[in-house]
């Protein structure tokens, strides 16, 4: 079981993932540089947060052209688990591995804060070991996190249980106040049709230790590791 953590120029959450994977979860991991062309040897891939290639145009818009992305797409198409958090989610959307787009927050400002999300689907590698409806306390940190999709896409997401997380109040209600960025339908995370590619705006790696205020993010990563372990 080995996790590949991707680094694009401008990525900054890779160290945090590495820290949690190694020091908290004690699993094998390695960095994958964006100029590489192979992800051989990895059982699961993580696209971390940051500003890949500066994101001056639009979050993830340039990163999808990085050489490594062809290998990532192949890995995803063959059913390998791929997780994108924050900028990683944006890149997965730009690369066409996930539907929809992430627009500028309605506040027009960057937001870094703790939010609560409700687990809407447990049929993904990231949420398999969670309880349906489980509330998680995890921070967000982004300026472009407002999930948006065309009506027919949204309908398909709903119909196929592909909305994975929604912003909620601490007691699990889906309200406008609980929505930190204006995301459509309070959507914080979605998965692809094959259910092996999951994108979410929150940062699970920042909520993996009690000292830092929450261990809920660790639950997600543990689920991922369990799912990616080959029988």
């Amino acid at each position: 079981m080995k996790v590949g953590v991707l680094i694009f120029p401008g990525t900054w959450s890779h160290q945090d993932f590495a820290h949690v994977l190694q020091d908290v979860l004690g699993c094998e991991w390695g960095y994958v540089w964006h100029k590489d062309t192979s992800v051989a040897g990895y059982d699961c891939l993580v696209l971390p947060g940051g500003f890949a290639h500066g994101d001056y145009l639009r979050g993830g818009a340039i990163a999808r052209f990085s050489p490594i992305m062809e290998a990532v797409v192949r890995f995803a198409k063959s059913g390998g688990p791929v997780i994108g958090s924050c900028n990683g989610f944006q890149i997965l959307c730009e690369a066409g591995l996930l539907p929809g787009a992430l627009l500028r927050n309605t506040s027009l400002q960057y937001r870094c804060r703790w939010v609560y999300v409700r687990t809407e689907s447990t049929a993904t590698p990231l949420t398999r070991t969670l309880a349906p409806g489980q509330i998680l306390k995890i921070p967000i940190s982004h300026g472009e996190g407002r999930y948006f999709a065309a009506p027919e896409t949204l309908a398909a997401l709903r119909a196929n249980d592909r909305i994975v997380f929604r912003y909620a109040t601490p007691d699990g209600r889906i309200t406008a106040e609980a929505n930190p960025n204006g995301a459509l339908d309070n959507i914080a995370g979605v998965c692809n049709e094959g259910r092996n590619v999951v994108g979410l705006m929150p940062h699970p790696e920042r909520a993996a230790e009690r000292l830092l205020g929450s261990e809920d993010g660790r639950l997600l990563l543990e689920s991922l590791l369990a799912a990616a372990t080959r029988p």
Binding site: W12, S13, Q15, D16, H19, V20, Q109, Y110, R111, C112, R113, P139, S141, H203, E205, R206, A208, E209, L211, L212
Partner: peptide, 14 residues
């Protein structure tokens, strides 16, 4: 002011 700043990166902010 500070909610506009990423103050949690590096998993150090206790």
């Amino acid at each position: 002011v500070w909610q506009q700043y990423d103050h949690l990166l590096f998993c150090n902010t206790v």
